[in-house]
Amino acid sequence: MKIFLLLVLFSGIGFLLIDNLRFLSNSGFSLGAATHYYVTQGFEQTGALNLVSSILYDFRAFDSLGESTVIFAAVSGIVSLLSRKTLPVSSHGLSIIVKRIFGILTPFLFVSGIYLILHGHLSPGGGFQGGVILGTISIVFCIVYGSSFDYTRYSPQSKTILEVSGALLFLAMGIIGIFLEGFFLANWFSSPERLGKLLTPGSIFGINLGVGIKIGAGLSIIFYSIIQKRIEGK
């Protein structure tokens, strides 16, 4: 009954939408004024070769501020929802082979994460992607070495401090922009003449770093909040 109703509805919606949006496929897509500017002059203006990064952290850096605040809020919300008198799940991890192999692999994971963050403005990648890889390291620790491994070594407080300092770094980059360039989140210290080097893009570099730290710590906090097992009566 419901299926039939849905089928009728959705065939109707689909038909009407296709009909209404035919204009789009007929005319095709053309670059707007802003994107034309990004594509032709973006790298010279910002000093970042990766145009996506330059948009995310310079032209539309305010979006990224909002976005990292979204993650920050989600982390706070999840922690406030799940925090209880908790003990970590008593899992002892996988076999010794896996443990050794990941012992070898983890530094490489870490390096690749850091690389993605630091080279975010030069090559594919950026703060978010690198941060996610950093976050996975802590998840891998949990799976491979047992849940108490990471939990006992790195307290939630230190992760919180990392997360907050990432966010504050982002804001600091923006605020320094006010003093140096006159605008909040302005790209200060960019030097387009040395295009392609690591430190060229000024604040984009710092923001990338901040976001990376923040995302890594945040994801790790989320993960550990969710896997905590509730012990009744404590």
């Binding site: 419901k2 509805l9 109707g12 009407l16 939408l17």
Partner: peptide, 16 residues
């Protein structure tokens, strides 16, 4: 939740 596509459909139809 089912009311959402129903309203969507209604509005699309109404615009016609």
């Amino acid at each position: 939740l089912l009311l959402i596509p129903i309203l969507l459909f209604l509005l699309l139809l109404l615009a016609r």
